[in-house]
Simulated scan of single mutants.
Amino acid sequence: MRKALIWSTLALLSVVFIYPFVWLLSASFKPRGEVFDHRLIPETFTFENYLKVWQEAPMGLWMLNTAYVTVLAAVAVTVTSAMVAWGFAYFRFPGRNLLFGVVLATMMLPGAVTMIPTYLIWNSLGMVGTLTPLWAQNLFGSAFYIFLLRQFFLGLPREPFEAARVDGANNWTIFSRIALPLCRPAIVVTWLFEFQAAWTDLMRPLIYLRDSSTFTVPRGLKALLDAYGFGGEWHWEIVMTASVITTVPMIILFFLGQRHFVKGIATTGGKG
């Protein structure tokens, strides 16, 4: 009875979480007048929306821009956060805990506090209107990812690192050839988290992008939402179809990285 209750609860929660996407997928195959009829199986099944969305909007260009920004943002924040986390976990120096506390304290700063100063910096560099501000900020790491990776590094034994140092390995060799391979699950988790965050980010594209040729997918969806609203009537079938096209890559990515994702979350240590 206990197992049946657990499985029933899990099945119910799965339905709750999956239903919105199933509804979205169903709506993308419906004509305009049937989008909100709440039927999961369309009464009138059509592929016209998937053809029309590519004609009405440069989805290919938007997805290319999004992929460019997302990959660079994920790689940049993963590498820099890992380097900082390794420094806090491996090296012993005065004020280490205090400095690490300062890094964690930055997570308490709301994004709205730094939004205007950050914009002014990029504007003075002449980067407003380009894709650079959307990913280059990640070159300075992230406090959350630094914490996550540091906890993982603390769970590694120091003996392999000391043995490598005796053999003549320098700090960079120890970090890149021993530490990083050992914490691959945590690296994958960090990369996936940031990939999802950059792929779905709307705020920064709204602030920095002006030309539709530089739009990312979320910014493009906002443009579609604005463009197809006239006279109180909305072409929701186009918006739904574009949403499906942009959601599917993330689902595929998480399925491919699921094993590393679960392992990284489960094995991230709690050492301090």
Rank of each mutant, 00 (worst) to 15 (best):
R2N: 12
K3F: 14
K3T: 10
A4F: 14
L5I: 12
L5T: 08
L5F: 12
I6T: 13
T9P: 04
L10G: 06
A11K: 10
L13S: 06
L13P: 01
S14A: 15
S14Y: 12
V15Y: 11
V16E: 01
I18H: 12
P20R: 14
F21L: 12
V22L: 15
L24S: 08
A27V: 02
F29R: 06
K30T: 01
K30D: 00
P31S: 13
R32Y: 07
G33W: 07
E34Q: 14
V35R: 06
F36W: 13
F36G: 07
F36P: 01
R39H: 09
E43C: 15
T44I: 14
L51G: 12
W54C: 07
A57K: 09
A57T: 08
M59L: 13
G60S: 11
M63R: 12
N65T: 08
T70M: 07
V75P: 00
V77Q: 02
S81M: 03
F88W: 02
Y90E: 05
N97P: 03
N97I: 08
L99D: 00
F100Q: 05
F100H: 04
G101W: 01
T106L: 12
M108R: 13
L109S: 05
G111T: 05
T114V: 14
M115P: 00
I116Q: 03
T118L: 12
T118A: 13
M127I: 07
V128L: 09
V128C: 07
G129P: 02
L131H: 02
W135T: 01
W135H: 04
A136G: 05
N138V: 00
L139T: 03
F140S: 09
Y145K: 15
I146V: 12
I146M: 09
L148W: 01
L149P: 01
F152Q: 04
F153Q: 01
L154C: 05
L154V: 03
L156M: 11
R158M: 14
E162M: 15
E162D: 11
A164E: 00
V166Y: 06
D167A: 14
N171R: 15
W172Y: 09
I174Q: 10
S176L: 13
L180M: 12
I187V: 10
V188H: 06
T190L: 08
L192F: 03
F193K: 11
E194G: 09
E194V: 12
Q196Y: 09
Q196T: 09
W199C: 01
L202S: 04
R204L: 11
R204A: 10
I207T: 08
Y208T: 04
L209R: 04
D211W: 07
D211T: 12
T214H: 13
T216P: 04
K222D: 08
L224W: 03
G229D: 02
W236V: 09
I238E: 02
T241I: 11
A242Y: 05
T246H: 11
T246K: 13
T247Q: 09
V248R: 07
V248E: 00
L253S: 02
F254T: 06
G257L: 13
Q258S: 15
R259T: 08
T267H: 10
T268D: 00
T268G: 06
G269I: 07
G272N: 11
G272E: 03
